[in-house]
């Protein structure tokens, strides 16, 4: 197991070299000059020139790429032009909030999806099932920004139960403050999980081993809890995995609206200020995260289903 994990991590290297290359080249063709962005419009040409030299922007492209590779290997991922800090430090400061939203929203999603998936599967084909489906279809169709504003207007400004945004100090404060952003992200996750779990449940209910379990004399409840549910949940592992990789870089809108200093807002700010090192560093970092989340997903799969081996 350990060796397999190590092997998988080593396989990361060629992937990352590819990602760095693509990320680097894409940014080369992006319009806008980082130096003038950083210095403002009143900077003299000499000052700009000095700035470019300082950041290595005057070097040939391939040299810049090699510098970037060096920064990745040494772990700094480059130095932010805007913040004047190593990218890794910026990431480290923001990662907890993004991971917080990832875990929190997934938890909310499971709590919402599980009962409704079970209810829908047990009532498949009848009005309860279609009512639940309608609600979740609406949830998926709602644009996140709109949902954010509805929740802010209703729960934050209207009822005053939650702050309109920002983060707090410590775990408890953030459980409270990150609730609304996590809810927005979690509801779409819930819709995905509900749909896949519902059909997994319905498929599993037809499995022969469910008949075997009933033939043993187990009552419906025991058959459901011991055989149907556990086997159905396995298939949601991959859904959650895909969703988590997406959330890590994809919560830009939610983070912006709720003023959460996470990776998404870091990326947006970097793009706006043409902070090339940050954009590049984040690209590579996101790629690493996707691979790691995939690995964790596969490990969970292998642990949950004895037929699956980690490869």
């Amino acid at each position: 197991m350990f060796q397999v994990i190590l092997k998988r991590l080593l396989m990361l290297v060629p992937v990352l070299i590819g990602i760095t290359l693509i990320g680097f080249l894409l940014l080369q063709v992006m319009p806008g000059d980082p130096a003038s962005r950083a210095m403002g419009t009143r900077a003299s040409p000499e000052e700009l020139e000095a700035m470019r030299r300082l950041w290595g922007l005057d070097q040939p492209v391939w040299v810049q790429y090699l510098y970037f590779l060096r920064d990745c290997v040494t772990g700094s991922f480059g130095v932010s032009i805007f913040h004047k800090l190593p990218v890794i430090d910026l990431v480290a400061a923001r990662l907890p909030f993004t991971l917080g939203i990832v875990l929190y929203s997934t938890l909310i999603a499971l709590l919402v999806a599980l009962p409704f998936a079970i209810m829908a599967a047990l009532n498949r084909g009848n009005p309860v099932d279609s009512a639940i489906r309608q609600v979740f279809v609406v949830l998926i169709a709602m644009p996140p920004f709109w949902l954010c504003y509805v929740l802010i207007l209703w729960l934050a400004l209207g009822l005053g139960w939650f702050p309109t945004g920002g983060v707090g100090d410590g775990f408890a404060a953030n459980v409270y403050r990150l609730f609304l952003p996590s809810l927005v992200v979690g509801l779409s996750t819930a819709a995905l999980i509900q749909q896949s779990l519902r059909s997994a449940l319905i498929d599993t209910m037809k499995a022969d081993y469910v008949d075997t379990a009933r033939a043993k004399g187990l009552n419906g409840r025991a058959v459901f809890l011991r055989h149907i549910l556990p086997n159905s949940l396995i298939s949601t592992i991959s859904i959650i995995g895909v969703r988590v990789s997406w959330i890590i870089g994809g919560t830009v809108v939610v983070e912006k609206i709720f003023s959460v200093p996470g990776l998404g807002s870091l990326l947006i700010d970097a793009i706006v200020s043409r902070d090339l090192p940050v954009i590049r560093g984040l690209t590579v970092f996101f790629a690493i995260m996707v691979v790691i989340v995939n690995l964790i997903t596969d490990i969970c799969y292998a642990l949950a289903d004895p037929r699956v081996r980690l490869e």
Partner: peptide
């Protein structure tokens, strides 16, 4: 009723299905 059946199933009458691969829970 299902309730009474569950006392008959497995204890008085047992069932052997055609395909033992699908008849056993793969994760147990």
């Amino acid at each position: 009723t299902e309730r009474d059946l569950s006392r008959v199933r497995g204890r008085e009458v047992a069932f052997i299905f055609q395909d033992p691969l699908t008849a056993l829970n793969p994760t147990m």
